[in-house]
Design a protein around this nucleic acid. Structure first.
Lengths: 384, 384
DNA sequence: TTGTATGCGTTATCAC
DNA sequence: GTGATAACGCATACAA
C-alpha cells in the first residue's frame, strides 16, 4: 500500500490555517497550486479565499437562504472554487450522512435490449434530477452471489432500482429488504412485495389487446411462447402475460392443443426454437403470441428459415416494442412499453420515497398496441 | 434534513469505549443490539468483542500476514462480525484513501446494442475482479454537460473506462485528462490519445476481410454506409472502417460513383435510409458494406421492403456481430468483435495501470469474419 | 499482540 | 456573518 506519495503537509496545512496565514493578498489569490496533484478540497478553497472551511461549505452547499452570508465573501469563495475546479467529494458527503446523489440500478440482464433501453431511460431521468447511476448485475442465478456483492458494496447510494424480475434471487431480495433505504422494482410484475415499491406495466391490458386483435383477424388456433420458470413458479411480467393468455383462451373458448404453450429462454434463439417446435406439431397454430419482442423476432427468423410466410401462413406478435421491432422482416406487431414514463416514475419513487413510513407505492402503467405487418388474417386454407 | 433520527449516543458510545466498559462477559457477548436500526460498525464489533476498533480493523481487513494477531481474539472478532452481519462501509474506506473498488464506465450510447453488450462484458469482468461499475452517459453532444457531471461526481472511483467514441466531446476529454487516475478508452479507434490507454479492435483487418470476401464473390460495385462526422472529422472505429474501405477501393481499382459512400446515424433507421438512397442511384451497387450491424440490419429491412432479394440482388455485410445479426433475415455476414477479450483487457488495464509512470498502453485486438447468408455472388444479370 | 491517536473531506451544531 | 469543532467509519503510524 505504498501508493499515494506521503503528504506530510497535511498537518502543516492545518496549522497554517490556524494562524491567519498568508494574507488574503496577492499570494493567496493566486490559485493553481492547491495541493500538488490532488483534487482541491474545501480547505484549499478556504485557505485561498482567506476564510474558514465551514464558511466554504455553507456557500458551496448553497445552504437554503436560512444562513445569511456576506455577498462579498460568497462571491470570492465561488470564484476560488471555480478557478480551482473544486468538486465536492461524494464519499465524504455520504459518510457524513448526506445524500450521495447515486442510485443503484440492478439489472437482471443488460444484454436484453429491452433492459438496455430501460437503463438508458433511467439514466436520463436520474441525470435530469442530478443523480448518477451505479449499475449492478444480476445475471443468471449462478452469479447471484456477485449481484449480492454489487448490492452491498453499492449500499452507499441513496436508493436502489431493480430492473426486471430479480425475485428469483432470494438472497438478493432478502438482503435488499433489510437495507433501510428505498427500493423500487421496475418491470417486476405488478404484485406488490413487502418493503419495495413497484412500477409495472399492465401486462393484462397488453395481452388482451393482442388477443382482441388476433381474434378479430379470425385466428382461433393461437399459441404462446415465453416464460422462464423459476422454482416452478412463473414470475414477473412474463408470468402475468402467460396467465392472461391462458385466461383469454378459457374465456373465449379456444382450443389449446398440447404444446401450444411453450417455455423458452428470453433470447432470439429461444424464440426460434419455440417456433420450430410449434411447427412440428400435428395441429399447427395460425398465430403465435410471443411474450417478448426478442422471442417474436427469433420466431420470425425461424419462420423465414422454414419458408413460411408471415403473416401469410402465420401471424406472430410480440411485446415490448424494441427499436428493432419496427425493422424486423416483416415489421412486428407488438405492445409498446411506456419506457420513459416508467423510468421517470421509478426514479421519482426512489428519490422521493421518504421510506420512513414504509410508504410503498405501486404504479401500473398502460402499454399500447402497435399493429404492424407481422399479423394478418387467418389463412383461408386453414380456416376450417 | 430532519431525517436520520438524531442519535445522541454517538458520544456516549465513544466514552463507553474509552473505559473498559461492560466487561467482556455475558452482557457484551450478547449481540443483536448493536445500535438500533443502524448498520453495525467496527466500533460496535469492538465493543461486543471487548477489543479496540483498530484490532477489529486489522482482523477484518485480513491484514496481510505481516500483523500477527492472537488467534483467539481473531476468532472472537470474526464471530462477532458474522453475528452482527457486519459490512464494511465503502465510503469510509474510500475516504480513507483506500480503493473504492468502483470503476466508472462512460458509454456513448447504451441503447446501441453493441455497447450494451460491451457494458455487460465489462461488468462481468469487473465483478470477477471484485469491482463494481458505475455507469455514466455521454448521450448526444447536447447532453455533454451531464456526462461531464457524471464523470466528475464519479471521480471517487478507481479508474474510468470510456466506451465508444467520446472524443467529440472536448470538454469531457479535457476534464478526463486532468484527472489523475487511470483512463482507458475502449472502441475509440486505435490512434493513441495523450494520457489514456486504448484497447481497440483492428478495424482495418476487419474491413479488409469483408472486402476480400466480396471481391472474391465477384463484386466490383461496392458501396459503404456509415460515419458520424464530428467537427468535420471522422472519428473512432467507424472512421477507421471508412478509411480502410476507401483505401481498398483505390488499391483494387474499383469505381466509386458519386453517392456510394453514405453518412448515416448509427441506427436501424439510418441504415434503412442509406440503402434507400443507394437504390435510388442511377448506378446501383451490388454490395453494401455497412460499418455496423445496426446499419446493416436497417438496410436489410429496407431491401426487403423494396422487394429486393438479399443476396440475390444485393449483398449486405456488417460489422460487430451483434446477437441479432444471426437472426436477421437473411442472417448477416459480418465481423465478429472479440468483446469479452476486449472488455477483459480494458478492465485489466484500468485496474493495473499504476498510472504513476504515465504508462499508457495501446492494445489492438483482431476481429474475425463471419460469413452467413446476406452475402453472395454478384448477380449475373448485373455482371457486365 | 493490542491499544491510542490521527486524518480523510463534509456537514452540522455551537459559540462569538 | 463567521469560525471552531465534533462526528461519520475506517486504516494506520506509533506506542505500549
Amino acid at each position: 500500500m505504498a501508493e499515494k506519495p506521503k503528504r506530510p503537509f497535511a498537518n502543516g496545512r492545518t496549522e497554517a490555517a490556524r494562524k491567519p496565514a498568508r494574507t488574503v493578498g496577492t499570494a493567496a489569490k493566486q490559485p493553481g497550486m492547491p495541493r500538488p496533484g490532488r483534487v482541491p478540497t474545501m480547505q484549499d478553497i478556504a485557505d485561498a479565499a482567506g476564510v474558514s472551511q465551514s464558511t466554504v461549505s455553507r456557500v458551496l452547499t448553497g445552504a437554503p437562504n436560512a444562513i445569511p452570508i456576506n455577498p462579498a465573501t460568497r462571491e470570492r469563495i465561488l470564484e476560488m472554487a471555480r478557478m480551482m475546479r473544486y468538486r465536492p467529494n461524494p464519499l465524504a458527503r455520504g459518510l457524513r450522512g448526506a445524500k450521495t446523489m447515486l442510485i443503484g440500478v440492478i439489472v437482471r440482464e443488460i444484454t436484453d435490449p429491452f433492459f438496455a433501453g430501460a437503463v438508458d431511460a433511467i439514466s436520463i431521468e436520474a441525470n435530469r434530477r442530478g443523480y448518477n447511476i451505479i449499475l449492478g448485475h444480476a445475471h443468471s442465478r449462478t452469479e447471484e452471489a456477485m449481484a449480492l456483492r454489487a448490492v452491498l458494496e453499492t449500499r452507499h447510494c441513496d436508493a436502489i432500482l431493480l430492473v426486471g424480475d430479480t425475485r428469483d434471487q432470494p438472497r438478493l431480495m432478502e438482503e435488499l429488504r433489510r437495507t433501510n433505504f428505498p427500493v423500487v422494482g421496475l418491470w417486476q410484475g405488478t404484485t406488490p412485495m413487502p418493503g419495495i415499491s413497484i412500477v409495472g406495466v399492465d401486462n393484462r391490458w397488453g395481452i388482451d389487446g393482442l388477443m382482441d386483435h388476433l381474434l378479430g383477424l379470425g385466428h382461433r388456433k393461437i399459441a404462446f411462447v415465453g416464460g422462464a420458470f423459476l422454482e416452478g413458479r412463473l414470475i414477473g411480467d412474463i408470468g402475468e402475460r402467460r396467465a392472461t393468455f391462458l385466461d383469454r383462451v378459457a374465456q373465449d373458448g379456444l382450443r389449446l392443443p398440447d404444446g401450444f404453450v411453450r417455455d423458452a429462454q428470453n433470447t432470439l434463439a429461444g424464440g426460434a426454437g419455440a417456433l420450430e417446435a410449434l411447427m412440428a406439431l400435428p395441429d399447427r397454430p395460425t398465430a403465435v403470441v410471443a411474450s417478448t419482442d426478442q422471442l417474436a423476432i427469433g420466431a420470425l427468423h425461424q419462420a423465414a428459415h422454414m419458408g413460411l410466410s408471415v403473416p401469410g401462413d402465420l401471424s406472430i406478435v410480440g411485446f415490448d416494442d424494441l427499436p428493432m421491432a419496427e425493422y424486423a422482416t416483416p415489421s412486428l406487431t407488438t405492445v409498446c412499453m411506456p419506457i420513459a414514463q416508467m423510468a421517470a416514475a421509478g426514479v421519482r419513487a426512489a428519490i422521493e420515497e421518504e421510506h420512513d413510513g414504509e410508504a410503498v407505492i405501486v404504479q401500473i402503467l398502460r402499454p399500447q398496441i402497435v399493429i404492424r405487418a407481422s399479423s394478418g388474417p387467418v389463412p383461408v386454407a386453414i380456416r376450417q
